[in-house]
């Protein structure tokens, strides 16, 4: 949120990811959650990384691609009710810095998880399938598309 800054937008979802410090916060949250998972005694490094990746992708999928409208802000009177959070970012423009950043992070996480799981087949299948959740809905070609009418209303 633009804390301490007055914004005149009735839907702050348009610009929330452009606020100061939000990228760093995002990375920090991933890092700290990873440390937390690593500190669980019976998880090996490989499991910890795969778990981080899976949790990150699933949570971000729910936050960005399932939640629609403006759940915490009402003044827009349901203007964005048909748009997912991702589609609202930067007023729906493609290839903005925020969108590039949000697409790159899960890919890098996948690289790390692959590396630390020693390119194991089972880990690969898990990591690659949740990566699909994070990448496919972000493609510009799928903007506003609801495959098979899922989550349409």
């Amino acid at each position: 949120m633009n804390v301490g800054v007055a914004h005149s937008d009735s839907n702050p979802n348009h610009s929330v990811y452009n606020s100061k410090g939000i990228w760093v916060t995002y990375i920090l949250i991933i890092f700290l959650s990873h440390l937390f998972i690593l500190s669980v005694p019976f998880f090996s490094v490989a499991i910890a990384w795969t778990l981080t990746n899976v949790l990150h992708d699933v949570i971000m999928f729910m936050m960005l691609h399932i939640t629609k409208g403006t759940p915490w802000e009402t003044p827009d009177q349901g203007d964005a009710r048909t748009e997912t959070q991702w589609e609202q970012i930067d007023y729906g423009k493609q290839f903005t810095a925020t969108k590039k950043f949000l697409t790159t992070v899960p890919i890098l996480l996948f690289f790390l998880a692959s590396f630390y799981s020693k390119y194991d087949k089972v880990h690969f299948i898990l990591n690659a399938s949740v990566l699909a959740l994070s990448i496919i809905p972000k493609l510009p070609q799928l903007h506003g598309v609801r495959l098979f009418g899922i989550n349409k209303y």
């Binding site: 493609q94 290839f95 903005t96 790159t104 390119y119 087949k121 690969f124």
Partner: peptide, 26 residues
């Protein structure tokens, strides 16, 4: 394994494509 490296290479291509596509600035 080869399939894994190919997959990662594809992802690298995607990242490259993202970064070289014309940037839109609000």
């Amino acid at each position: 394994p080869a399939y894994h490296l190919i997959f990662e290479a594809l992802l690298m291509v995607l990242i490259a494509k993202l970064f070289f596509s014309k940037s839109y600035k609000p």
